[in-house]
C-alpha cells in the first residue's frame, strides 16, 4: 500500500516560488492500477517523482507498506528503488547498449552476477514479446518496442510497484493500446501495483480501476473511474468529462449519458442511428471522441436525451453490446 500524506512540493524559480503540489493525500492499494490525470502543469510528474524520491517533497510523507520513504538512508533508498521502478514518456533507454544489456542494467547496478542477469533478461524479453531483439540497439526499434524494452527493464528487479510517467503519450493509438494491455497483463499476472500518470482520459478509462484528478497541484477528485467520470463534481473533472464548451452542455436541460467504448466490436455498426430506428429514441450527440483500433472501438460519447425513461431505455439498449458502458452523468449534483 502506498500512502501519500499531506504532500507539498515547492520549487524556487527566478521570480519567486512555485507550489507544484499542495497538501496532496492519496492512498493506493496493492494491486490497483491507479490513474493520476491532469492537464500539463498540474503537478502529476512531480507527484510521481515524490513516490520514489527523485524529487524530495517540501512537506508531507510518502509511506510504502508503512515505511516512510523520505526518512530512508541513501543505501536503503537505493534498495527501495529496485522495488518501485519507473517507465517514462521518452523511454530513456541507454542508446549505446543492446536491448539485452539495457534490461540487465538494473541487475548490474544491484550487483547480480552476469549469468543470472542475462538469464532473467532473456525471460523478460519473452514476457514483453520481443525475444528476437536481444542484440538489437534501441535506435533500431520503434517507439512501442522501445517502451516494451523499458518495461522489461523496469521488471528486472522484481518490483512491487510500477510507476508510469506519461508512458504512452509519445505513442500512436494502436501502440498505446498494446502497451496498456501489456501493463494490465503485468498487473494481473505478477500482482504489481501500477500508478499511471497521464493527461489522456482514454488511458485511464481503458486500464485504471481508480483515478485521482490533479488540478493546480491539488487533488480535485478521487475515486473509482466509473464514479469520477459519471458524477464529476469538481470543475477539473467536468473539464475532462465534458470537452470544450462544457458550460453550454451542462446548462442544457437534457439528461446526459456518457457512453464508454472500451474495446467494443462496433466499428461496422451505426449504433446511435440504429438505436433511433430500433427503439425510437433520437439522442443528441453532444460530444464524441472515439477511435477505432483494429475492429474495436475505444473512447467515449456524450449523449443528450429527453427524460428518465429514455435514459433507462438507452442504457439498456446500448449495453447489449459487449464492452459498452453507459452512465448517466450528473454535473449539477
Amino acid at each position: 500500500m502506498i500512502e501519500i500524506v499531506n504532500l507539498s512540493k515547492s520549487f524556487d524559480v527566478a521570480d519567486g516560488r512555485v507550489d507544484a503540489l499542495k497538501n496532496v493525500s492519496l492512498t493506493i492499494n496493492d494491486g490497483d492500477i491507479y490513474g493520476i490525470i491532469g492537464m500539463s502543469g498540474a503537478g502529476k510528474s512531480t507527484l510521481v517523482r515524490c513516490i520514489n524520491m527523485l524529487e524530495r517533497p517540501s512537506d508531507g510523507k510518502v509511506l510504502i507498506n508503512g515505511t516512510d520513504i523520505g526518512a530512508l538512508s541513501d543505501a536503503e533508498l537505493i534498495k527501495t528503488r529496485r522495488k518501485v521502478t519507473m517507465i517514462f514518456q521518452g523511454f530513456n533507454l541507454l542508446m549505446q547498449r543492446t536491448c539485452l544489456k539495457n534490461i540487465c542494467f538494473p541487475l548490474e547496478l544491484a550487483g547480480v552476477d552476469k549469468k543470472s542477469a542475462r538469464k532473467r533478461a532473456l525471460e523478460l524479453l519473452e514476457i514483453v514479446g520481443l525475444p528476437d531483439k536481444a542484440n538489437a540497439y534501441p535506435a533500431q526499434l520503434s517507439g512501442g518496442q522501445q517502451q516494451r524494452i523499458a518495461i522489461a527493464r523496469a521488471l528486472a528487479t522484481d518490483p512491487e510497484i510500477l510507476l508510469c510517467d506519461e508512458a504512452t503519450s509519445a505513442l500512436d493509438p494502436n501502440t498505446t493500446h498494446s502497451i496498456l494491455s501489456l501493463i494490465r497483463e503485468i498487473n494481473e499476472r505478477l500482482g504489481i501495483t501500477v500508478i499511471i500518470i497521464t493527461h489522456q482520459m482514454s488511458v485511464v478509462e481503458e486500464i485504471c480501476n481508480r483515478v485521482a484528478i490533479l488540478d493546480g497541484g491539488m487533488v480535485a477528485e478521487e475515486g473509482t473511474v466509473a464514479t469520477v467520470f459519471s458524477k464529476p463534481q469538481s470543475s477539473a473533472a467536468k473539464r475532462l468529462v465534458f470537452p470544450d464548451g462544457a458550460n453550454e452542455i451542462i446548462d442544457s436541460h437534457e439528461r446526459k449519458l456518457r457512453v464508454v467504448f472500451n474495446g467494443a466490436f462496433a466499428t461496422k455498426t451505426p449504433m446511435i442511428t440504429k438505436m433511433a430506428v430500433d427503439i425510437g429514441i433520437c439522442a443528441n450527440i453532444l460530444a464524441a471522441s472515439t477511435k477505432c483500433i483494429g475492429d474495436k472501438v475505444y473512447g467515449n460519447m456524450l449523449l443528450g436525451v429527453e427524460d428518465e425513461e429514455c435514459v433507462r431505455k438507452v442504457k439498456e439498449y446500448l449495453e447489449m453490446t459487449a464492452d459498452v458502458h453507459v452512465e448517466e452523468v450528473n454535473a449539477d449534483a
Binding site: R81, T85, M86
Partner: peptide, 10 residues
C-alpha cells in the same frame, strides 16, 4: 532523462 532513469533504478 537517461540519468534520471538510472537514478530511479537505484
Amino acid at each position: 532523462n537517461i540519468i534520471e532513469a538510472a537514478q530511479s533504478m537505484g
